[in-house]
């Protein structure tokens, strides 16, 4: 996990979810790129973030795109967050004894029978053991710091703009105490009708 560095976080809000990552790509202590996003769209309402070995981040991003497309074609509908979480889990578990070195974090909105959208977040370890959390999930080299700050800042039922501020402050202050993460961040706030994406400047060191 320390080879390339990087951190990811996702949080639940009121009728919305947020997910974000830092932008550093390193080769151990040497910073190679400062524009390396680790969060990718899956559908209009599901995003996945991956921290860990950067080559596996790219490979799994391609793999997930392929599998989600196959799912969409076969089922003739878009995948729901919970099904996607299990798709991620089984994709990782396929490599149980020679794993991909990534820790995924997923965030999405799922449609209830009544037609309203409910937040969903989940994370997994490198072999796909899922963790469904009600509040927030973190991964990466700054995960301990992110846990500490998130535990202090997060509260239930945050409105989209407040959720954006909470996740941004958590991520920025968490990665500022981590040498392997940083160089700015990107945040996506997922709402039923749109996704707000903002790129943040951090300490840039």
């Amino acid at each position: 996990m320390e080879y390339n560095g990087g951190s990811v976080i996702a949080m639940v809000g009121k009728g919305c979810v947020a997910i974000g990552s830092d932008l550093r790509l390193g080769n151990q202590a040497l910073t190679v790129a400062t524009n390396f996003e680790k969060v990718f769209p899956v559908t209009d309402r599901i995003y996945i973030g991956m921290s860990g070995l950067a080559t596996d981040v790219a490979t799994l991003r391609e793999q997930f795109r392929f599998r989600v497309n196959m799912y969409t074609i076969k089922e003739e509908r878009e995948i729901e967050p919970e099904s996607f979480a299990h798709l991620v889990s089984s994709t990782l578990y396929e490599r149980r004894f020679g794993p991909y070195f990534i820790e995924p974090v997923m965030a999405g909105l799922w449609k209830t029978q009544a037609g309203e959208y409910k937040p969903y977040i989940a994370a997994a370890d490198l072999i796909g053991c899922l963790n469904f959390a009600k509040d927030f999930v973190v991964a990466g080299t700054a995960s301990e710091k992110l846990f500490g700050v998130a535990e202090g800042l997060w509260e239930p039922d945050l409105e989209p703009e407040d959720l954006f501020e909470t996740i941004s402050q958590t991520l920025l202050n968490g990665v500022d105490r981590d040498a392997y993460s940083g160089w700015g961040a990107v945040i996506h706030v997922i709402l039923p009708d749109k996704v707000i994406t903002r790129t943040l400047k951090g300490r840039m060191d």
Partner: peptide, 15 residues
């Protein structure tokens, strides 16, 4: 593009 032997890829201004 900066690419290493692991397959790590980054689009960069210089490398």
């Amino acid at each position: 593009y900066w690419i290493d032997y692991l397959g790590t890829q980054a689009e960069v201004p210089f490398a």
